[in-house]
Design a protein around this nucleic acid. Structure first.
Length: 283
DNA sequence: CTATCTGTTCTGAC
DNA sequence: TGTCAGAACAGATA
């Protein structure tokens, strides 16, 4: 799924395109991805869009909110009235005009613009809840601080790392401890910090923790700057892909040469996810 | 054809 | 309480 930079990019797009619009209709084509009462959001206006970790919150002006998780393959694409997404000969399943086979929810605004929720694997969801419950649902007991935020201090990292028995990569991806990091940015930040992903979190030195903290903040910024990563299906609100993968140092580059030392990048499963790293540079 | 992979996270079993 | 496999799903790839 989109990780923090991707979701943040979508948030920005929604603020520009959809803020202030009034929902005229919601069409639900796959019930399992829409949780809650669709009637509660009809005739409501989008007041604000926020983000907690990888979860989007669309705040409406009637006391309700839509919270959205894109999981691995979810997309939110906005189209103005009468605008036609690029079609042509459909090659890839996601490059067809909207709505298509994997469009599960269609939000229509009063000016006849649309917001489409597409999700090939149907793991993602859109959920209607009371805005007063948003903070409780997405509270700090469920989501740790994110890189760059106030709570993301060296002391905090030291605490969670020393208590964990898992590998550093697994801890980085644990949303309860740190929000917004997934497979891509955990792999990339560990490379910049020169730490191998298989290392036990509780074996990191203070110096390594300091380096990792900086690396995480750096890759998140890089991701944002490049509009996210599009290895697979991620697109922004306009249906365009992100460019982070062009500059990725290790992610999805097994067998290729390390940009620093020229050695071979290797990959291995850690806790069910594929990790990528340079055995020569990362210890 | 089959088998295996995939940017996530929750649940139930131990 | 922590950890782990499996599940939710569909398509791309070898």
């Amino acid at each position: 799924m989109p990780e923090l930079p991707e979701v943040e990019t979508i948030k920005g797009g929604l603020l520009i395109k959809a803020k202030g619009k009034k929902i005229k209709d919601v069409r639900i084509r796959v019930p399992k991805v829409f949780i809650g009462d669709r009637k509660k959001i009809i005739d409501a206006k989008i007041k604000d869009v926020r983000r907690t970790g990888k979860i989007l919150q669309v705040i409406l002006d009637n006391g309700y909110s839509i919270i959205i998780h894109l999981k691995m393959t979810g997309q939110l694409v906005f189209e103005e009235r009468g605008e036609k997404s690029v079609g042509g000969h459909p090659q890839k399943i996601y490059e067809q005009p909207l709505p298509h086979k994997h469009t599960h929810i269609i939000y229509t605004f009063t000016d006849d613009s649309h917001l489409y929720f597409n999700d090939l694997r149907k793991f993602g969801w859109n959920k209607v809840i009371k805005t007063s419950k948003v903070d409780k649902t997405l509270g700090p007991d469920k989501f740790g601080p994110e890189p760059g935020s106030k709570g993301f201090s060296s002391e905090y990292l030291k605490k969670i790392f020393s208590r964990s028995k898992k590998t550093i990569k697994q801890v980085l991806m644990d949303q309860n401890k740190i929000s917004g990091i997934g497979n891509i940015y955990s792999s990339e930040s560990l490379f910049y910090a020169r730490i191998k992903p298989t290392k036990s979190a509780n074996k990191l030195s203070d110096k390594e923790i300091e380096k990792l903290k900086k690396a995480l903040e750096k890759v998140i910024k890089l991701g944002l700057k490049h509009g996210g990563s599009s290895e697979n299906t991620y697109v922004n609100i306009e249906g365009k892909k992100g460019k982070y993968m062009d500059i990725a140092v290790v992610y999805q580059r097994a067998g290729e040469k390390c940009r620093k030392c020229g050695g071979k990048i290797r990959s291995q499963k850690i806790g069910g996810r594929t990790a990528f790293w340079c055995p020569a540079c990362q210890h």
